[in-house]
Write a protein that binds this DNA or RNA. Sequence first.
DNA 1: CATTGTTAGTTACAAAAACAACTAATATTT
DNA 2: AAATATTAGTTGTTTTTGTAACTAACAATG
Lengths: 144, 144
Amino acid sequence: MTKNDTFDLQDFLPYLLNQAAEASSHEFQLYYKGRYGMLRTEWRVLFHLGRYGDMTAKTICERASLHKTKVSRAVAALEEKRFLTRSEVPDDRRHETLGLTRMGQAAYADLNREAARFDAELVEQISENDRAVLRRCLRQISGL
Amino acid sequence: MTKNDTFDLQDFLPYLLNQAAEASSHEFQLYYKGRYGMLRTEWRVLFHLGRYGDMTAKTICERASLHKTKVSRAVAALEEKRFLTRSEVPDDRRHETLGLTRMGQAAYADLNREAARFDAELVEQISENDRAVLRRCLRQISGL
DNA sequence: CATTGTTAGTTACAAAAACAACTAATATTT
DNA sequence: AAATATTAGTTGTTTTTGTAACTAACAATG
């Protein structure tokens, strides 16, 4: 035990990534949870609809790489908060198009603004050059 | 909606970090879950004891930045798997020193080896220079 | 055109995480 | 030294997640 030829947890990339992810998400999470009682998935769904316009749940699953049950629940929660509405697609009654209500759009606008603010704050500590490297590496690791 | 002056989720650092964290952890998680039936917290506790030697639950909490309830349950689970034992501290009966059993040490050695392997695989895709930048940025974001 | 297969989404149940309340032991204060 | 506070850890309850099974609508095949 306590060998020195073994590598350290502090160098294990998944660990570092998890720590950084948690630390960086925490403050923003408090914001959307505190202000809108939203969960992370709900925020992501809201974001996709707000940013890219109306779409079906399936499309959100694909674009956000979220499981359909998660999206299903998030949609139900957002609907109950009156942030989105469903509308039937005439030629295929299996799926519905989701769209934000005025309230949903307002929440999206607010959260997007806040997200940008948080991001700017985070990125501020990192040099211009490092930011690019960081984003590139993260995308690569994510398999995007 | 669908404004272009708003920033994109793909650029939001917490999002990128979460995606990368999830993607990078997944395979290793399957390994320790499949082979030892361990949860993430259990692995972390095991790791700390294996890497840094015997210590109390409180110390693990601090070093691993884990909540005491999580550690408490992980310790109980590891104890049941016969990976660790508790021994009383004579002068203060509130806490106990935790130490790995032979089995626990074997599991640690194995997992540490695998972790190193996974890490090497991940890091392989990233240029020598970028690795250093990445690790530095992650530590900074984590507030370490 | 009936059977089988697929797709979109929901629901039910089990596993895990989060949070709060609780013991028991030791320290501190008055 | 009795009362109060603090520390280490556990237990209980509630949320949230994950997984699998299920509908309902449509598509494809024979």
